[in-house]
Amino acid sequence: MKILQAELPDKLYEQIKLLIDAGWFQDEKSVITEALRRFLETHKPELMEKFIKEDIEWGLRGKD
């Protein structure tokens, strides 16, 4: 496990606290881990590559 230290804007932290207080998450660590996981899921390099390959197909052989 790696330990990261980061400064967060107050508003962002308030939102994290709200989720914990409402019982959706156990602590700050679980909110941040889940948020990062979701972000990384949608920002994968292979995804970008896949879309570029679609662009090649459209760009070179598309009809419009």
Binding site: F51, E54, D55, I56, W58, G59, L60, R61
Partner: peptide, 14 residues
Amino acid sequence: RAHGTIGILLRAIR
């Protein structure tokens, strides 16, 4: 439908 910069540059040929 979505495309990007690369698509536009390649489309420019056809």
